[in-house]
Simulated assay, not measured.
Amino acid sequence: MKVLLVASAGGHLAQLIALDKFWKEHERTWATFELPEVKAALEGETIDWVYFPTTRNIPNAVRNLKVAWKTLRREKPDVVISTGAAVSVSFFAVAKLLKIRTVFIEAYDRITMPTMSARLCYPMSDLFVVQWEEQQKAFPESVNIGAIM
């Protein structure tokens, strides 16, 4: 299976990295921010850099749509997996257009109030994953896998 892993830096990326038992078994590409700490954490991995900031930044959202289009057309992944944040929306929109499956994992630290990226990606997700039972109130068709970290 070929996987595209999409995340903002920081906690979002840390949650995807924590799933290494899964993604190390597959051919993969990452889409994330070009920052020193990200380069260090993903050393040796194939990465497509996305524009930031992304939160409520329309010009970068448009730029990231272009990156998503280019990346998804080139890589042709079987699935796009994201933990957010805003960069996930561009990739999920393009993935849906290209009929590529999507998996969104809601942030561990957002127990009672959903993230904006989760609310936007929920209708575009083939599988929507939460880490707390309380998160299923906002996302009734989600699957609770428990804490990743």
Results as ranks from 00 to 15, higher is better:
Leu4Asn: 01
Leu5Tyr: 05
Leu5Asp: 02
Leu5Ala: 10
Val6Met: 09
Val6Asp: 00
Ala7Glu: 06
Ser8Thr: 06
Ser8Ala: 08
Ser8Cys: 15
Ala9Gln: 04
Ala9Trp: 10
Ala9Thr: 10
Gly10Ala: 09
Gly10Phe: 07
Gly10Pro: 03
Gly10Tyr: 06
Gly11Met: 02
Gly11Gln: 12
Gly11Arg: 00
His12Ile: 13
Leu13Ser: 05
Leu13Thr: 04
Leu13Asp: 01
Ala14Asp: 09
Ala14Ile: 08
Ala14Thr: 13
Gln15Asn: 08
Gln15Leu: 15
Leu16Val: 07
Leu16Met: 07
Ala18Gln: 08
Asp20Phe: 15
Asp20Lys: 15
Asp20Leu: 11
Lys21Phe: 15
Lys21Asn: 11
Phe22Cys: 04
Phe22Met: 03
Glu25Ile: 10
Glu25Phe: 06
His26Trp: 00
His26Phe: 11
Glu27Pro: 02
Arg28Asp: 08
Arg28Ala: 03
Thr29Arg: 01
Thr29His: 11
Trp30Glu: 05
Ala31Pro: 14
Ala31Glu: 08
Ala31Arg: 04
Thr32Asn: 01
Thr32Leu: 02
Phe33Ser: 00
Phe33Cys: 00
Glu34Asp: 03
Leu35Asn: 03
Leu35Asp: 00
Leu35Tyr: 08
Pro36Thr: 13
Pro36Lys: 06
Pro36Ala: 10
Val38Trp: 02
Val38Leu: 03
Val38Ala: 01
Val38Ile: 05
Val38Asp: 01
Lys39Asn: 05
Lys39Glu: 10
Ala40Thr: 14
Ala40Phe: 13
Ala41Val: 01
Ala41Gly: 06
Leu42Thr: 02
Leu42Val: 04
Glu43Ser: 15
Glu43Pro: 09
Glu43Arg: 14
Glu43Tyr: 15
Gly44Ile: 05
Gly44Ser: 03
Glu45Ala: 04
Glu45Ser: 02
Thr46Leu: 08
Thr46Met: 06
Ile47Arg: 00
Ile47Ser: 03
Asp48Gly: 09
Asp48Gln: 11
Asp48Trp: 15
Trp49Pro: 01
Trp49Gly: 02
Trp49Ala: 05
Val50Ile: 10
Val50Trp: 00
Tyr51Cys: 12
Tyr51Met: 10
Tyr51Pro: 03
Phe52Met: 12
Thr54Asn: 11
Thr54Gly: 15
Arg56Asp: 14
Asn57Gln: 13
Ile58Ser: 12
Ile58Arg: 06
Pro59Gln: 08
Asn60Ala: 13
